[in-house]
Every structure is written in structure tokens, then in C-alpha cells.
């Protein structure tokens, strides 16, 4: 399927907006948090995106944004970038580990470094920083010149 075609089809779904084509074989779309779970299921089951490349958490100061990169394992290399906005005071979203096993540690990393909570994740704990570390250092308001504890 052409990139423009499937982005158009996906943009018609509830909660999806801003469908666009970034470059050859790469699409971009924005989804609301409420609609994201149903959207991801369709992406995996109907559109064949079988590989979760990356989950990036971005601190936009006003809120958080999750950027998912999905791709298809074939020689065409179709990709889709999905943006989901999260409010600053409740940075939670449903986990996608039951759809893509590879999302497991990406979600743990987003929790560890940015403090995003993934509901339904089998084992949401820190992955790169030690247990008991205070705060989430990739947030823009994290003050890292002051270390109260030695690590």
C-alpha cells in the first residue's frame, strides 16, 4: 500500500489527526491518548506494522509527548511515526507490550528517564538508573547540578 493511502485511511479513525507523509515510505500521524490503544491494535493487526522501532518521550514543558516509530519488516521499509500528547500532571498511557514485545524496555526507559507511567506494563521499573534514584533526569525541570545522594 502507498504511504499516503494508509496514512489517509488511518487519519479517518477516531482521535487521529494531522496525517502527513514525511518522505518516501514514512508517514506521520497524531492520536489522542484516549483513542491510542484502539489505534495501535488496528496498526498491528490490520496494517501489518509488526516492528516497534522506538518509543521516545519528549518533555514539551507544557506537557509530555510520546513519539512511537513503527515499521514493517519487509524490503519496502514502510514506517509510521505516531505522536501522542500527555498532560503534565498525569503522564500515563496504556502499555503496548501485549502487542509488540519489543516495546517492553522502551517503555521502561521512558518511565526511568522521563517519568511516563505505562498502565498494564508487566514489570515497570527502572532499567538504566539504579532503584531508588530520585527523579527523572531527562525532564527539562530536573536539576542535575545538585546531587543529594552519591551514586
Amino acid at each position: 500500500m502507498e504511504t499516503g493511502q494508509f496514512v489517509q485511511q488511518l487519519a479517518k479513525r477516531d482521535g487521529a489527526s494531522d496525517g502527513s507523509v514525511l518522505r518516501a515510505n514514512v508517514g506521520r500521524i497524531t492520536v489522542t491518548r484516549a483513542a491510542s490503544q484502539a489505534f495501535f491494535r488496528v496498526l498491528k493487526e490490520d496494517f501489518g506494522f509488526d516492528h516497534c522501532s522506538l518509543i521516545s518521550a519528549v518533555d514539551n514543558q507544557t506537557g509530555f509527548e510520546l513519539v512511537y516509530h513503527f515499521s514493517i519488516i519487509d524490503m519496502e521499509g514502510q514506517m509510521l511515526e505516531v505522536h501522542v500528547e500527555l498532560p503534565r500532571d498525569t503522564p500515563t498511557i496504556d502499555s503496548i507490550t501485549h502487542l509488540w514485545g519489543g516495546a517492553d524496555w522502551h517503555e521502561r526507559e521512558a518511565y526511568d528517564l522521563m517519568g511516563i507511567y505505562f498502565i498494564g506494563h508487566p514489570d515497570l521499573k527502572r532499567v538504566l538508573l539504579p532503584d531508588g534514584f530520585a527523579g527523572h533526569p531527562l525532564r527539562k525541570d530536573y536539576v542535575y547540578e545538585i546531587h543529594e545522594e552519591e551514586w
Binding site: 516492528h51 519488516i73 519487509d74 524490503m75 521499509g77 509488540w100 514485545g101 519489543g102 516495546a103
Partner: peptide
């Protein structure tokens, strides 16, 4: 392997012809 997110030589060694030098 695809579901777990394994890529590169580790995925191609299972017979999957996926190489980003051509796919992207």
C-alpha cells in the same frame, strides 16, 4: 524475533531478508 524487536544480523540469521541498507 520480529515481535521482540530483534534486528540486524540476529534477525537475518533466522532467514528474514531485512536489511535497512536497502529497505531505508
Amino acid at each position: 524475533a520480529i515481535n521482540w524487536g530483534i534486528t540486524g544480523p540476529n534477525l537475518r540469521s533466522a532467514g528474514v531478508p531485512f536489511d535497512l541498507r536497502q529497505a531505508d
